[in-house]
Simulated assay, not measured.
Amino acid sequence: MELTVHTTYDTKALTALAKALRKTVRVKSSRITHLIALGIILLCLLLIWCSLNEPWSVVQYAFVIILLGVISWKEDALNAFFALRKGMPDLKECTTVFSEDHFETSLSGVVSQWAYSRIIALAETDAYLVLILSKNQGHICEKSSLDSGSIEALRSFLEEKTGLTIQRIRG
């Protein structure tokens, strides 16, 4: 059985990858980060209340609150933005071929073979299947561009080969 998927690595795809990483292998550190941000926001609210007669201080603390709120709200999109900026400009189109003993990725003419044992988690969003290889690395498969077979066949094939269950991620 051989399945082929073509994926475009754009902001939408990398946002899905960042979200999958955050919701699977980075879940503990993500919670800690969000708790720290919440603590800073609460501290700023307290400082605003204590310095109501100093307008410049209120503006500064409000700015910190707004900044932390936006960063927490859009963290996956920000991670995708920086990943696109850091990556090579010609690494946009990827072809993945799943075979019985390994899967191959082809980016800009460079072919890499990966053992299924390297996958530490599987995730699925509405548009993508995500193969997570480490805390900072993953591979995205666009569901709509599956050449042969069905998405259900690919799901069951990946679950069988890795021994992992696909985690559903909303959004």
Rank of each mutant, 00 (worst) to 15 (best):
S144Q: 12
A13Y: 05
F103C: 12
S72K: 02
L164V: 05
D76E: 13
K161P: 04
A127L: 10
D10E: 04
G87A: 15
V5F: 01
S57L: 13
D101G: 06
C141N: 14
G171W: 07
I71Q: 03
L91W: 03
A18M: 03
S108Q: 12
Y128V: 12
F82C: 08
A80N: 06
A37P: 00
Q137P: 00
P55C: 01
L3Q: 04
K28Y: 08
S72C: 14
C50A: 10
L122I: 02
V5D: 05
C94G: 01
H34F: 07
L146N: 07
S134N: 09
C44T: 04
F63V: 15
T96A: 09
I166G: 09
G69A: 07
V5L: 07
T4A: 05
S72R: 06
G69M: 10
K28D: 13
L122R: 14
A62W: 06
N79T: 03
E54F: 11
K135C: 04
P89F: 04
L14R: 05
D76F: 14
Q60Y: 12
E54R: 12
S57A: 10
R170F: 03
S57P: 02
S99A: 10
V58M: 14
E2P: 01
I36F: 06
S29Q: 09
T162F: 03
D76P: 09
A83M: 10
E152M: 08
G171N: 12
A83E: 04
R85K: 15
K19V: 10
Y128W: 11
E2V: 07
L146P: 12
R155C: 14
S134R: 08
L3H: 06
Y128K: 06
E159K: 10
A153V: 04
I48N: 11
T125W: 07
K161H: 07
A18C: 08
S99C: 06
A18R: 07
Y61Q: 02
F81G: 05
A80Y: 05
Q113C: 11
Y128M: 08
Q113A: 09
F103N: 06
F103D: 11
P89R: 03
V5R: 08
C44W: 04
L164H: 13
T11I: 06
L67D: 00
L84A: 04
V25Y: 05
L154S: 10
A37G: 09
L46M: 04
K143M: 07
I120R: 11
V58S: 08
A127P: 01
V64N: 03
W56E: 06
L38V: 00
C141H: 03
L107P: 02
A153E: 15
S99E: 13
W56D: 03
L17H: 01
T4D: 05
L133S: 10
L164Y: 12
L122C: 09
N79V: 03
H34W: 02
R118H: 09
Q60N: 03
R168Y: 08
V5G: 00
F103R: 11
R118M: 13
D126S: 14
P89K: 07
